[in-house]
């Protein structure tokens, strides 16, 4: 059954869209990630114009993060103050990202830029995660491992404009969280992702935040940044497809429920290894498209469209 998407201006199979949504939803339920980094490349593969895929991807992240944010707010595992600082950075980053996005679109290089960002970020994060999770797995097998220090003092703690973050138990400069937030904002605008896969490790290793508030705080920042990105893409590029988003979300919320069930049955270390492998697999797939000679060297783009 085909559905006509009014903004993307293509007809796509309804079950493909629901399937993509459900598949990504299941993975995001299993691993507790937003899934934007999977949905955007998958939309490219089924022929959605990149600009629409990125903008709609950002919209889908809002839907897949909202229930998580509410759950964390109830459990009070959100550092609102830190979240707000990250968010200010995020809004600045997202605005910059939108400008870069429009500029690259005009140059005809947006596909390349998006694909390259996917290869670089997914490659680096995937490799780091795999290394970390394999080490953690090894450590759990070898019982009686030495306890890690609560947090280490690094150059981050030497910067000015210090602020007290009570929930996180930190007294650090606002510059690193602003920069982290801005970086994630740029990614959200250019790649259509929430950016949790960058922000979570940055919060743990760079800012030294306690793990129990990391997920809730990152979700809090992500939901506002992606909401802002969605609006900005809608206003500057008219590239958010509500119809597309609706079917992805519909598939996604159902898939997420099953994913959560599966996730609770697997061990945390195993989950992280699987997620790392998945991230690396997506990275390789996107990289292959850039490295292998395409069958058709030419492409046609309608001007004034996407």
């Amino acid at each position: 059954m085909l559905v006509y998407l009014p903004i993307a201006e293509v007809s796509t199979n309804l079950f493909t869209l629901l399937g993509v949504g459900a598949g990504v939803g299941m993975l995001s339920g299993m691993f507790g990630v937003g899934g934007g980094f999977l949905i955007t490349p998958l939309l490219f593969f089924i022929g959605i114009p990149p600009a629409v895929a990125v903008a709609t991807g950002a919209n889908q992240v809002v839907a897949s993060s909202i229930s998580g944010v509410l759950a964390h707010l109830r459990r009070k595992t959100v550092d609102l103050k830190m979240g707000t600082v990250l968010l200010i950075g995020g809004l600045i980053g997202s605005s910059l990202g939108i400008i870069v996005f429009r500029w690259l679109s005009a140059l005809g290089q947006i596909d390349l830029a998006v694909q390259l960002s996917y290869v670089v970020f997914l490659g680096v994060v995937g490799a780091l995660m795999l290394q970390e999770s394999l080490r953690a797995w090894y450590r759990t097998k070898k019982s009686g491992s030495p306890r890690r220090k609560l947090h280490q003092h690094t150059w981050v703690h030497a910067l000015p404009f210090k602020m007290k973050f009570r929930v996180s138990g930190l007294y650090i400069s606002v510059i690193p969280p602003l920069l982290v937030g801005a970086a994630v904002g740029v990614l959200s605008a250019v790649m259509g992702v929430g950016g949790g896969f960058i922000m979570v490790p940055a919060m743990i290793y760079l800012l030294g935040m306690p793990t129990k508030v990391v997920v809730g705080t990152s979700l809090f920042q992500i939901i506002f940044t992606t909401a802002y990105t969605t609006i900005m893409h809608a206003v500057t590029g008219h590239s958010v497809d509500v119809m597309l988003a609706f079917f992805l979300i519909l598939g996604g919320v159902i898939g997420a429920q099953f994913g959560t069930q599966i996730g609770t049955r697997l061990k945390a270390e195993q989950l992280r290894i699987l997620l790392a492998l998945l991230v690396i697999a997506v990275c390789l797939k996107v990289a292959m498209d850039l490295l292998i000679r395409p069958d058709e060297l030419y492409s046609v783009r309608v001007l004034g469209g996407f």
Binding site: N59, I66, I249
Partner: peptide, 9 residues
């Protein structure tokens, strides 16, 4: 678009 995402999610 946001409202749909929030309500559906």
């Amino acid at each position: 678009a946001l409202a749909i995402a929030i309500i559906a999610g």
